[in-house]
Design a protein around this nucleic acid. Structure first.
Length: 507
RNA sequence: GCGGAAGUAGCUCAUUUGGUAGAGCGAAAGCCUUCCAAGCUUUAGGUGGCGGGUUCGAGCCCCGUCUUCCGCUCCA
């Protein structure tokens, strides 16, 4: 059902110039897409809406545009080099994939549990006279289990450090670890999945250094913290915002533009005094949800998802999920990142990344509350929610994109009712007047009803029609996309009227 | 990456057992029209994903490959 709608949405996106598969004439490139003539407009408008809300509307937030290439140490400090390098292994019978290190850790955990069980059993047997500490340190069974577990993880750590994947596989086989699903020991080789893209910097290939395409934009903000703080006369609390491309070599990339290898993030890192972070975390959660709702999309399409298991850098995290055609999925994350990143960069760079607080007369590494939203995902949220096939009273079907007017790629279509009697000339005059302020389109081909439908299909909120009455009193009709209703207004008032209709909703 | 399904015009699809491709919508040019798709004329657009094999002959059968879609571990 919704699968069907999703397919229609993808087709529509292509057919009307919103999104094309990348390099399609060469059969495309998996999980990479291009934005077409209307798609890039919509995407730009969403980005502008975000930038205005975050930067222009906050006197204590500034924007930057950091490079995609960054010094390789950045990613050691951020934890991405380690966290994004997973050794994976498949069980050939169950077809399940596991992280090799997790399998071994689970095995070790099992050994520890066995040791605890021995202790429990002994407790029951000896009753009150039981000396747990003595038993724990002397019982051969307990010691053996604990030793097994510790050996397993110690050896694993050594193998991981040496990047010895064959050794890791042998280790799993030696420990006789079985797949929890199939129960078999029929394992594939261990393979390393590096989720960061790398490339070489330097024109000569020897001596060239491996660098990564950033997997998140946030680090470009952290490494510029001192620059912005010093040159921008910033006082805590303050934020730094940035939009830009990020790259992840996802193992599976799916669901149209929802998960792409190359995607665009809109992030804001908000620097606060340590201890204040929960207050700001709550406040930004509220503010970000308002931003979504101000697009006029109903609240029931959104929900919160609180993280139980936190990433290595966070002490609180929640996601805004959106009801996509394939279900509720993450759209934006609001994370309290503590001082993890700045402290890590301070350690790795040897440079002080601290804020001097004149009120308390002391320096500290600020805490960070991050808002991080996927631009492509927001695009998909807006687009998929806007897509509608309406059955009208006469039984005809109207395909319409109910994109929030202020985000629509084309704001106004100017349509002469007929192609004669000087009407196109008047229409072109009006078109030129509006072009200065709005993305406009002119169409004189085919019956008027068909032209309306064409504009509906690309989400144009307003169609202006010039008719014979225009020639008499210089008034035109303006048709609203969603209601299909028209009103007649003087041509001179058009620009002001449209401007007032294009404001985002206040919440 | 593994398993399953599928790749024919911009989109949705047809071509019944192999005989060298069609429709609807869409697009373009024009005609007709004073306000909500489907009026008329004309036109463009496909090396049937790509490569190989079987055959007198392959969109259809076989193999390989690429891509997409649906499930699994990662994530914005």
């Amino acid at each position: 059902m919704s699968d069907d709608i999703f397919k229609k949405i993808i087709s529509h996106a292509k057919e009307y110039g919103f999104i094309f598969p990348s390099s399609e004439i060469y059969d495309g490139l998996s999980a990479v897409y291009d934005y077409g003539q209307y798609g890039s407009e919509l995407k730009n408008n969403i980005r502008k809406y975000w930038w205005k809300s975050m930067v222009q509307m906050h006197s204590n937030i500034v924007g930057i545009d950091a490079a995609i290439f960054m010094h390789p140490t950045t990613w050691k400090a951020s934890g991405h080099v380690d966290a994004f390098n997973d050794p994976l292994i498949d069980n050939k019978d169950s077809k399940k994939r596991y992280r090799a290190d997790v399998l071994i850790e689970d095995y070790a955990e099992k050994q520890f549990e066995k040791a605890e069980k021995e202790i429990e059993k002994a407790k029951k047997r000896f009753g009150d006279t039981f000396d747990e500490a003595l038993f724990r340190s002397t019982n051969p069974r307990v010691l053996e289990y604990r030793q097994k577990g510790e050996d397993a993880t110690a050896k694993m750590a050594a193998l991981l450090d040496a990047n010895d994947l064959d050794g890791l596989k042998k280790h799993i086989e030696d420990l006789e670890i079985v797949c929890p699903i199939s129960g078999s020991r029929n394992w594939t080789d261990v393979r390393q999945f590096n989720l960061m893209f790398d490339t070489k910097i330097g024109s000569v290939s020897e001596g060239a250094e491996t660098i990564y395409l950033r997997p998140e934009t946030a680090q470009g903000i952290f490494v510029n913290f001192m620059n912005v703080y010093k040159t921008g006369r910033m006082k805590i609390p303050f934020g730094i915002a940035q939009t830009g491309k990020a790259f992840r070599n996802e193992i599976v990339a799916r669901q149209f533009i929802f998960r792409m290898r190359e995607f665009e993030q809109m992030e804001m890192q908000f620097f606060v005094r340590p201890g204040d972070e929960m207050k700001w975390y709550e406040s930004w959660r509220e503010e970000r949800m308002k931003w979504h709702l101000a697009m006029g999309i109903p609240a029931e399409k959104y929900r919160w998802h609180k993280h139980e298991k936190l990433a290595h850098y966070a002490n609180a995290a929640a996601d805004i999920e959106f009801d996509f055609p394939f279900g509720f999925k993450e759209l934006e994350g609001i994370h309290s990142r503590t001082d993890f990143d700045l402290t890590a960069h301070q350690t790795h760079s040897g440079k002080k990344l601290q804020y001097f607080d004149p009120e308390t007369n002391e320096s500290y590494v600020p805490y960070v509350v991050e808002t991080s939203i996927g631009l492509d995902r927001t695009f998909l949220a807006v687009f998929s929610h806007a897509f509608e096939e309406q059955t009208l009273e006469d039984g005809s079907v109207r395909t319409v994109l109910k994109i929030p007017p202020f985000l629509a790629p084309i704001k106004v279509a100017v349509l002469p009712l007929v192609k004669k009697d000087g009407i196109p000339e008047v229409a072109n005059k009006i078109l030129d007047d509006l072009r200065e302020d709005y993305m406009v389109q002119y169409d004189e081909k085919d019956a008027i009803g068909r032209r309306y439908r064409r504009q509906d299909a690309i989400g144009t909120p307003f169609c202006i029609t010039i008719d014979y009455e225009t020639l008499e009193n210089n008034t035109v009709t303006i048709r609203h996309r969603d209601s299909m209703e028209q009103r007649r207004i003087p041509a001179a008032e058009l620009s002001a009227y449209i401007a007032s209709e294009l404001k985002p909703k206040k919440t």
